[in-house]
């Protein structure tokens, strides 16, 4: 058996794959957080909840309406985005002029409420959600066995991240978004409907979180609690990457996911805290984050 640093290569590549998959979710989630924060100046504590809602919606679509994975991949993020629209219109909108901490506390409260209600109605136990028939099975890559669905998740999240990056960097809408991030008053004076832009941005972020949730559903169990610890890790990812750049959020997400996977191989006890340790080191060395500018 081939070994590396005294460990079987299968074990290492297996953990790296898990790390890469976790990294995909970190990337998708921190990307959404960064977009929302960039324009709305809101730290969306409900992001983990929206991720969970994506998975739960997909599960409900399947069990109640018998709608499968592929339509859910589009439908669930749309439904969660509409829920995001309500949150933005009913609550967040009134907090823009205040200290940012109020919107953090508001989304925190909403997250608690939604998770509590879901746990009450849905039960805390995880529900299985099987991957679509097209993506079941495994391929042998020679050095490791790759379940097709896991490969698909990595590719799909990469595509999603890159499309969002293209949307923001290369399209007219993205140009409006970036301009409004710099100076929303001026953009509004030019006749762009900034309030609508804000709503759209929040929906986009929420939708991305839900997309991550749908992708995660077949890998982890669908449960009302799946997002609550994840959001804190994503916060750490965002602090490490700095929220200044979209690409920074994506790269940091994947990198920290991989690092976490590697830690699981070499020192499993530390795997749950390694991302926080990295955050502490980055704060010491480069307080603004790896890709950030001090706001």
């Amino acid at each position: 058996m081939t070994t590396l640093f005294g460990l079987p290569i299968q074990a290492i590549s297996g953990q790296l794959l898990i790390g890469l998959i976790n990294g995909s979710f970190y990337a998708l989630l921190s990307l959404g957080l960064a977009i929302i924060f960039g324009l709305l100046r809101v730290i969306n504590f409900a992001h983990g909840t929206q991720y969970m809602l994506g998975a739960v919606t997909a599960w409900l679509l399947l069990t109640v309406l018998n709608i499968g994975f592929w339509p859910s991949l589009v439908l669930a993020p749309l439904i969660v985005a509409v829920a995001g629209l309500l949150i933005e219109r009913l609550f967040l909108r009134y907090l823009y002029g205040l200290d940012h901490l109020y919107s953090l506390l508001l989304t925190f409260g909403l997250a608690l409420m939604i998770e509590g209600l879901m746990r009450d109605g849905f039960g805390a136990a995880g529900k299985p959600y099987s991957p679509p028939a097209l993506l079941t099975g495994v391929v042998n890559l020679g050095f490791m066995i790759l379940p097709i669905y896991r490969g698909f998740v990595v590719v799909a999240s990469l595509i999603a991240c890159l499309s969002v990056w293209l949307l923001i960097e290369k399209t007219k809408l993205g140009a409006y978004l970036r301009a409004a991030t710099e100076n929303s008053g001026l953009v509004q004076a030019f006749g762009v409907n900034v309030p609508k832009l804000l709503t759209f941005t929040y929906m986009l972020g929420a939708g991305l979180a839900a997309l991550a949730g749908v992708l995660a559903a077949p890998i982890y169990q669908v449960s009302p609690l799946m997002g609550s610890n994840l959001i804190i890790i994503v916060f750490a990812v965002v602090v490490v990457g700095g929220m200044g750049s979209i690409m920074g959020a994506i790269v940091t997400g994947y990198a920290l996911g991989l690092l976490e996977g590697l830690t699981k191989v070499f020192y499993p006890q530390a795997s749950s805290i390694v991302i926080f340790v990295v955050m502490a080191i980055v704060l010491l060395v480069r307080p603004a984050g790896l890709f950030g500018r001090e706001a």
Partner: peptide, 14 residues
């Protein structure tokens, strides 16, 4: 459930 209550208070306060 307690989280719903706590969360609701948060939203109301803010």
């Amino acid at each position: 459930p307690a989280p719903v209550l706590i969360g609701g208070c948060f939203v109301a306060c803010v």
